[in-house]
Design a protein around this nucleic acid. Structure first.
Length: 348
DNA sequence: AACGCGGGGTC
DNA sequence: GACCCAGCGTT
C-alpha cells in the first residue's frame, strides 16, 4: 500500500471527533481554518464554538462591528486574523452577493487566506485536489522521504508543496489533506513519536536512517527582543479610567490598552513622575502614584519579551482631551492578555 | 528572502 | 530555554 492510502485508512480509524468535521459548509470550514492558523485545536476550539454561536453565517459576521469581533477573538493572538476575517466577510456580502468563493483561485482573494487555507477550503468543501502544506505536512513528508531541505526556505516551501500535490488522492482530496495533518498531529509528533505503532515505518526513510528526531530541518528564528512597558492606570474620583486604541502596524493593532510609556530599560517612580509633569493632569495637579507590581510582569511573545509595570494613578479628574471610560465598562473592550490579566488581578 | 505577528503548550 | 502549533501579509 502507498502512503496516500495508508494515511486515509489511518485517518478513517483514528480521526478525532471535531465540530468542523461534521460539515462542509464553507463558512464554517473557513472560520475553523482561520482560527487554527498557528493555533492548536485545544486552544482554538472554544473560540470556534463562540464564533459559530454569535455569528451563525457570513452575513451576521459582516454586520458586526470590528470591535465586537476583536472582543470575541480576545486571547487568541495574531489579531490580524480577526480583522481580516471580518473584512473578508464584508467582501463576501458586499461584492459577492453572499456567495462563498468555491475555487482555490478565488478563495485566495480573501484577506487572511493564503495557499494553505485556500487549499483546505477548496478540497474539503468543493473537492478540488489542492494539497495543503502546514507544519504537520512538513514533518510527515520530510521524515517519510528523508528530506533535509529547510522547510522555511523558499526552496523547501516549493518542494514540499509539489511533493504533497504529487501524493494527493485526487478523488478524495479533503480526506487526504485532513488525514496527513491529523497523522502529523497525533502520530508523527514533533517530539518522541511512537514509531513502534506507526503504519508507515516500512518505507519511512527517517525511520530507516534513525534520524526521525532530526527532521524536519528549519532555519532558526532570531531571539526575541526585550521591551519595557509602563502602563498608566488612571482612576478618577468619578470611577473612570483611560483606554487608548492601538494604532499602526505593531502588535495588538486595534486592541485597547492603558496609556503606555515604552522605554529601552526599566523606569523608576522618579522618572515616571518626571514624565507626568508634562501631562498637566488635573486642575490642581495633585495625584497619587502607586506601582501595582513590584516585580516586572514578564509577558513572553514569539518575537518580544515584554517587561511590564502597571502604575496606578489616582486623580481627581482625568486629563483633558481623553475620552473617559467608566470602570464598569472596562470589560467591553478588546484587550491583550497582558492587560486582561492585570484587570482581573487588580479587581478595581 | 526575511521579518513581524500572540498566546499556550511540550519537553 | 528551545521548539512547536491546520500561516499570512508586508517589505
Amino acid at each position: 500500500m502507498n502512503i496516500t492510502k495508508i494515511l486515509i485508512n489511518w485517518y478513517s480509524i483514528n480521526k478525532r471527533v471535531l465540530p468542523w468535521r461534521k460539515t462542509k459548509n464553507p463558512y464554517h470550514i473557513w472560520l475553523s481554518e482561520i482560527i487554527l492558523q498557528q493555533t492548536q485545536i485545544k486552544q482554538g476550539l472554544p473560540y470556534y464554538e463562540a464564533f459559530i454561536s454569535k455569528y451563525p453565517n457570513v452575513l451576521s459576521l459582516a454586520n458586526a462591528p470590528e470591535s465586537e469581533v476583536l472582543k470575541l477573538w480576545q486571547g487568541l493572538g495574531y489579531y490580524s486574523r480577526a480583522r481580516n476575517l471580518h473584512a473578508s466577510a464584508k467582501y463576501i456580502v458586499n461584492d459577492l452577493n453572499q456567495e462563498f468563493p468555491d475555487t482555490y483561485k478565488t478563495l485566495l482573494k480573501l484577506k487572511g487566506v493564503g495557499d494553505y487555507t485556500a487549499s483546505a477550503i477548496a478540497s474539503i468543501c468543493f473537492n478540488e485536489p489542492a494539497a495543503v502544506v502546514d507544519g504537520n505536512v512538513y514533518r510527515v513528508l520530510s521524515r517519510f522521504y528523508g528530506i533535509d531541505t529547510p522547510i522555511n526556505s523558499s526552496k523547501g516551501i516549493k518542494f514540499f508543496k509539489a511533493l504533497a500535490q504529487d501524493i494527493i488522492d485526487e478523488n478524495n482530496p479533503g480526506d487526504y489533506n485532513q488525514a496527513i495533518m491529523e497523522f502529523g498531529a497525533v502520530q508523527c509528533k514533533p517530539a518522541n513519536p511512537d514509531c513502534n505503532l506507526c503504519p508507515l515505518t516500512q518505507d519511512c526513510v527517517a525511520y530507516r536512517n534513525n534520524n526521525v528526531q532530526e527532521l524536519p530541518v528549519k532555519i532558526k528564528a532570531k531571539k526575541p527582543q526585550k521591551k519595557f512597558f509602563n502602563f498608566l492606570v488612571f482612576i478618577s474620583d468619578s470611577e473612570t479610567t483611560v483606554l487608548e486604541k492601538r494604532k499602526g502596524k505593531g502588535i495588538w493593532e486595534n486592541l485597547y490598552q492603558f496609556p503606555l510609556l515604552e522605554s529601552d530599560k526599566s523606569l523608576t517612580e522618579k522618572s515616571i513622575k518626571e514624565i507626568l509633569k508634562d501631562y498637566k493632569l488635573t486642575k490642581n495637579s495633585s495625584y497619587k502614584l502607586t506601582l501595582f507590581n513590584q516585580d516586572e510582569i514578564i509577558h513572553k511573545l514569539s518575537h518580544q519579551h515584554l517587561y511590564a509595570k502597571f502604575w496606578i494613578l489616582n486623580v481627581s479628574e482625568l486629563p483633558q482631551a481623553v475620552t473617559p471610560v467608566p470602570i464598569s465598562k472596562i470589560n467591553d473592550y478588546a484587550v491583550p492578555v497582558l492587560i486582561g490579566n492585570f484587570i482581573e488581578a487588580f479587581n478595581f
